[in-house]
């Protein structure tokens, strides 16, 4: 696949943000390809004794996708928020496709390796997290967005603070409660 220009990606993100569903269909394979490349690098790196930090990994995906540094400050925050939402979509699609596979249907949204769907088995149920997050949104939309940014988007505390325009201390405080709430919600299922 040809490497899309970062400009193109930015445009697609904007289009998706504006409600263009087709833009999403184009974005997902791009993001997925990028993740794959990074995972490969990560593997190679590990054999030499280095381990990439997750946040660094996430950033690299974003930077490679759209050249974050070139995007202005205000846009950067917005961009992060969009990426986080995109990540959430991708992960949920993955989890769903696993579900379908289990039921013997071939309806898979994404072209995925079997290996990927197999090894996702051990991860916590993303679909359950998603549903719990939706119900958190009805109680407290701010915390729900924060979980999207932190858990799905992989943003640091500082970046989350930047996107949400609150202090890092508030992020930490909210994060604690959001985690407790979600853990309890998931345990009650």
């Amino acid at each position: 696949m040809a490497q899309p220009s970062s400009h193109e990606v930015t445009l697609l993100l904007r289009a998706w943000d504006a409600g263009d569903k087709q833009a999403l269909d184009q974005l997902i394979p791009l993001m997925y390809e990028e993740l794959r490349r990074l995972a490969a690098q990560c593997l190679a790196g590990e054999q030499q004794g280095h381990v990439l930090q997750t946040t660094a990994l996430v950033h690299e995906v974003y930077v490679r996708l759209a050249g974050v540094e070139s995007v202005g400050w205000r846009n950067r925050a917005h961009f992060f928020a969009l990426c986080a939402r995109l990540m959430r979509r991708i992960l949920i699609d993955l989890a769903r496709s696993r579900h379908y596979q289990k039921r013997g249907s071939n309806a898979i949204h994404l072209q995925l390796d079997e290996a990927l769907t197999v090894s996702m088995e051990t991860a916590p149920d993303i679909l359950a997290v998603d549903i719990a997050l939706q119900s958190l949104a009805t109680v407290d939309p701010r915390k729900s967005q924060m979980v999207e940014l932190r858990f799905f988007g992989g943003l640091t505390v500082e970046e989350t603070a930047e996107v949400m325009q609150i202090s890092p201390e508030t992020v930490l405080r909210d994060w604690r409660l959001a985690k407790a709430w979600l853990t309890r919600e998931l345990a009650a299922r």
């Binding site: 990074l38 997750t54 996430v58 995906v61 290996a115 988007g153 992989g154 985690k179």
Partner: peptide, 23 residues
């Protein structure tokens, strides 16, 4: 716990073993 490891890590871990073009 797992909430502190971004979902991204899970994804990367899932893809990693198959990445054969690595290194």
């Amino acid at each position: 716990g797992w909430l502190d490891a971004p979902a991204m890590t899970m994804l990367a871990n899932a893809i990693a073993p198959r990445a054969q073009n690595a290194g």
